[in-house]
């Protein structure tokens, strides 16, 4: 006997993500899902962003890693609320893992919540967590072929941060080529060129983020 089902396989996760989103919306909280390959600079970006914005915005962070709490400790030093999720092997965060952290936060007290996903260019793109938008980092040492090799993540993201631009002089590629390849996969990307080491470009990114929160309030 044939039984017709026609259902999204990730429907259960999508439903939890929608519930998370409804709760964030109720609290006027802007939430973004930060994704990149390992070592592209997610935690460094957060440290820098928090330094610039912490007097203007109340920020919370959820740190996702397979193991360890190094990243959460780095964020906690900035004096903002942070919860570490250890996925214990899973290569991505999902809606349920995010929901499990809610008891640790007072959402009324926050303007912006950042979910730092597990470092991985593939899996996190498939799983919604309830975010308003996705932000991804591509560091220049990874090479400009990454958008065409991992198109889903570039397609799903609203913002692309091209990081480590201070290293461009030592590489055989131009900043333009990174931008061009990324926009080929997703022409709607908002692109910022930054260096978490020198601080270049971070003000433009932080201004943009501040605007997102202002629009929400």
């Amino acid at each position: 006997m044939k039984v017709s089902v026609v259902k999204n396989i990730l429907a259960a996760n999508d439903r939890i993500a929608q519930e998370n989103r409804a709760l964030f919306d109720k609290n006027n909280l802007v939430v973004f899902n930060l994704m990149s390959s390992p070592g592209a600079g997610k935690t460094s970006l957060l440290e820098r962003t928090i330094d610039v914005l912490k007097n203007d915005l109340k920020i919370g962070v959820i740190e996702g890693d397979i193991q360890s709490s190094h990243d959460a400790e780095r964020i906690a030093e900035k004096g903002i609320p942070v919860v570490q999720i250890n996925t214990g092997g899973a290569c991505h965060l999902d809606g349920n893992m995010i929901r499990d952290t809610f008891a640790e936060f007072d959402f009324n007290e926050l303007d912006l919540l950042v979910v730092e996903n597990v470092g991985n260019l593939v899996c996190p793109a498939e799983f919604q967590v309830g975010e308003d938008f996705k932000v991804m980092i591509l560091s220049v040492t990874e090479g400009e072929d990454k958008p065409s090799k991992y198109p889903l993540m570039f397609r799903e993201s609203k913002v692309l941060l091209i990081n480590k631009i201070d290293l461009i002089p030592y590489l055989d590629c131009s900043l333009e080529s990174f931008k061009k390849e990324a926009l080929k996969v997703n022409p709607d990307l908002t692109v910022f060129e930054i260096s978490c080491k020198t601080g270049e470009g971070l003000d433009a990114w932080c201004d943009w983020l501040r605007d997102q929160v202002k629009t929400r309030k």
Partner: peptide
């Protein structure tokens, strides 16, 4: 034009199953 809507290629769905 780079303004493209995808119409297929992002599916991850169960269609049907054969059972007894």
């Amino acid at each position: 034009s780079p303004k493209i809507d995808t119409i297929s290629g992002q599916e991850l769905s169960i269609l049907d199953m054969e059972v007894e």
